[in-house]
Design a protein around this nucleic acid. Sequence first.
DNA 1: AATAAAAAAGACAAAAATATCCTTTATTCA
DNA 2: TGAATAAAGGATATTTTTGTCTTTTTTATT
Lengths: 144, 144
Amino acid sequence: MFSKACEYGIRAMIYIAQRSRQGERVGLKDIAQGIDSPEAFMAKIMQALSRQGLVQSVKGPHGGFYMDTQASKITLAQVVRAIDGDHLFTGCGLGLTECNEKKPCPIHDEFKLIRNKIRSLLETTQVGEFNELLEKGVLHLKRI
Amino acid sequence: MFSKACEYGIRAMIYIAQRSRQGERVGLKDIAQGIDSPEAFMAKIMQALSRQGLVQSVKGPHGGFYMDTQASKITLAQVVRAIDGDHLFTGCGLGLTECNEKKPCPIHDEFKLIRNKIRSLLETTQVGEFNELLEKGVLHLKRI
DNA sequence: AATAAAAAAGACAAAAATATCCTTTATTCA
DNA sequence: TGAATAAAGGATATTTTTGTCTTTTTTATT
């Protein structure tokens, strides 16, 4: 469904949202360990998210990544688009480059419904909305 | 969503179902051209589908692939499982290896709903059910 | 029996995704 | 100012996916 990069990216954004209230910073090492992802690969993903303004970063001692308050309203859809593009929301389920009402693939309509559900879920879910449940240990972000 | 191999595989199965009523055979070249897929790669995919019994094949002159009547009831889910495995139906949306009710990822419940919709769609759709609409030119299987 | 047709199988190639390593730049602190 | 810290960037490595090419096997036809 998502690429590995995107899975890591989503988990990282949720993790940072929870760990960086009031502008505290979360280091790369902390993130990688916190969501159980390969550190160097995570670095590349964070660079991309940072370049696209989905997360802020500060270099140097006590540096790291953080989000300001309104950034915790960033949706999972924004994260997915930033990393995987919007193919998931728009592409044909069977890989046709030109699949539409005029020239549909066999599962065009049904897949449109499902894609819309996915998009709707991702667009209505914010990276910051899991903070409390994560803190309580009800939700998890580590691979195992 | 699906791998390229799986997209080609689904389209090929639908194509063969339509082209091979009463046991006529459809050649590899015909399939590759009919769904606009790379022929040699298609060959590999057909080999896999054939090994797993989702399609029959005959070598030699006038050989090719075909399905008997009940095979056109094969579901898209069977094809997906044969090529991509059942990760799509069972895996965690955020890539956690151990994601369940006891230890859920943040979007566990919502993704379960979506996965179930996908599974349900694929399990209730048969490769042979598009024959008429394909013949009428209402539905399409070619990339462009 | 010889030839041709067509899938099966095996080896290889290219591209993309995933992952690592090393150097550079910015920042803080002593 | 100098040393340490941490992200940014660049180069490279590995793995997986996608794709191609060649040989082998099976079958039909002449």
